[in-house]
Simulated assay, not measured.
Amino acid sequence: MFIQPWDAALDEAEWHSWIAEGHDFGILSVNGLPGRPPVAVPTHFTADTGRLLIHLARPNPVWKAIENDPDVLFTVFGDYAFVPGPWRAQPGVPPTDGVPTSYYTAVQFTCRAHILDDPEAKADLLRRQLVHFQPDGDHAPVEPGLPPYGRMLPGIRGLRLDVIEVQAKFKYDDHKSVEHRTAVAERLAGRGEGLDAPAAHQQRRRLDRVGPWKP
């Protein structure tokens, strides 16, 4: 992932906080088998200390690719918006000469994948995921041999992704002037389509921390 200096995470805590705010869906990318294209799987995940936890259906074709090459990427993205050219035109330049861009946040994990087939290991993974996704505990016990989950465990495989490297990108025009970023954030909030509001929030948050960009 290409990251300009002004798009880089300001510190490790920034992307940790962004993930913890509820960005728990991403794309698992695995090198394809010889002669085949890469395999990409959209899925929810749970972040644990130094690792990501996933489960997928046993028939999923991704397993053979992982067994062939366990070095994978997992990408999470969000808070994205299209910024039209006229919004980015420099002072004194015709609005139609402005160049459009995309705003977004992306966190990419380089990982070593470990497949979990032991029933108790899969049950433990599901329990950890349910703590995150159903914290009220409104679900049956997840135990091998007990319904409803026990009879379903053979139909899934668990995946533990040990994180090797993290790249984080917050692309919100931080190299532009304070006035420009303020105006674009206001336009995003006023347009209010799709993820405009969270994109505007990220731009304002970064503006508060960065201020005028200093190379």
Rank of each mutant, 00 (worst) to 15 (best):
M1T: 07
M1Q: 08
F2W: 08
F2A: 08
Q4W: 05
Q4V: 06
P5F: 09
W6V: 10
W6N: 15
D7S: 11
A9S: 05
L10T: 02
S17W: 04
I19T: 05
A20P: 04
E21S: 15
G26S: 13
V30F: 01
G35N: 01
P37F: 07
P37Q: 01
P37N: 04
P38D: 13
V39Y: 01
A40M: 14
V41T: 15
V41L: 14
P42S: 05
T43W: 00
F45M: 04
T49Q: 10
G50M: 05
G50K: 06
N60W: 00
P61D: 10
P61W: 06
W63I: 10
K64Y: 02
K64Q: 13
N68F: 09
D71H: 11
D71F: 10
V72F: 05
V72W: 02
L73G: 14
L73A: 15
V76E: 08
G78H: 09
P86W: 02
W87L: 05
R88D: 06
P91I: 07
V93A: 08
D97L: 13
G98K: 01
G98I: 08
V99A: 10
S102K: 08
S102T: 13
Y103H: 14
Y103F: 14
A106L: 00
A106P: 02
T110M: 07
C111W: 03
L116D: 14
P119K: 01
E120K: 12
E120I: 14
K122R: 15
D124Q: 12
L126V: 15
R127S: 07
R127K: 10
R128N: 10
L130W: 04
V131F: 01
H132L: 12
F133M: 02
Q134K: 05
D136M: 06
D138H: 12
D138V: 11
P141C: 04
P144S: 08
P148Y: 03
Y149C: 03
L153A: 11
L153C: 12
I156T: 14
R157Q: 15
G158N: 07
L159H: 07
R160N: 06
V163C: 00
V166K: 00
K169F: 01
F170W: 00
Y172K: 03
H175Q: 15
H175F: 09
K176D: 15
V178S: 02
V178Y: 01
A183H: 06
A183V: 02
A185P: 00
R187Q: 13
L188H: 02
E193V: 15
P198G: 05
L207F: 01
V210L: 11
